[in-house]
């Protein structure tokens, strides 16, 4: 089977032959081919032998991909083809907007409608897990809507303040 996988931002292509009766296979990655053997210890635990070296991997399926743990390092691994399909149908990958990085509570709104803001100017202060985070304007512009208020519970992706970019700001980008 051929896999095109995204580990972090890197693409990994590998070809794995079907597993034989003793769960052995050959894996080709670029121009390197290795013999591996795998045992499923339980639904989250794989014991993999790569060229005879035993490694324990832990896996956990999550929406959009699978967490894989090797030697203390956890990676979110995605099927690259599925990621590309999601991207082409969905909104921009990195929305440039005033939105919290984590679920949070709004502490203060520091701007109002019609106010002109500089790039980097603090707009909203949110609190998550007892830590305050200042959300700044990603570009210079005019505030056209404030969609939140102090005390509101907000989620990543929720646009707390709409900013209409200034003409120069667009030209800069």
């Amino acid at each position: 089977m051929n896999f095109r996988l995204k580990v972090g931002s890197e693409l990994h292509s590998l070809e794995v032959s079907p597993l034989d009766e003793s769960r052995r296979a050959t894996v080709t990655c670029g121009d390197i081919t290795r013999t591996i053997a795998v045992e499923a210890v339980d639904s989250n635990h794989l014991n993999v032998r790569v060229d005879g070296q035993s490694r324990n991997l832990f896996v956990a399926a999550a929406p959009g991909g699978t967490w894989v743990w090797a030697e203390g390092r956890a990676r979110f691994v995605e099927d690259a083809d599925k990621v590309e399909r999601r991207k082409s149908s969905g909104p921009l990958d990195q929305p440039v907007a005033v939105t919290p990085p984590t679920p949070a509570t709004v502490m203060r709104v520091m701007v109002e409608v019609c106010q002109v803001v500089e790039k980097g100017q603090p707009c909203v202060v949110v609190s998550a897990m007892k830590m305050e985070i200042t959300l700044a304007a990603p570009y210079a512009g005019t505030i056209i809507a404030v969609n939140t208020e102090a005390g509101a519970k907000v989620m990543p992706g929720e646009i707390l303040v709409d900013i209409e970019p200034l003409a120069e700001a667009i030209a800069d980008e």
Binding site: L5, L19, L46
Partner: peptide, 27 residues
Amino acid sequence: RPSAADDDLTALGFALNEMLGPRIADR
């Protein structure tokens, strides 16, 4: 930044996990 040294191995883990499929019942 996290080291990418074991990323090939984690990719392999993903692939093998897919190939082995759901397996709680058969074990």
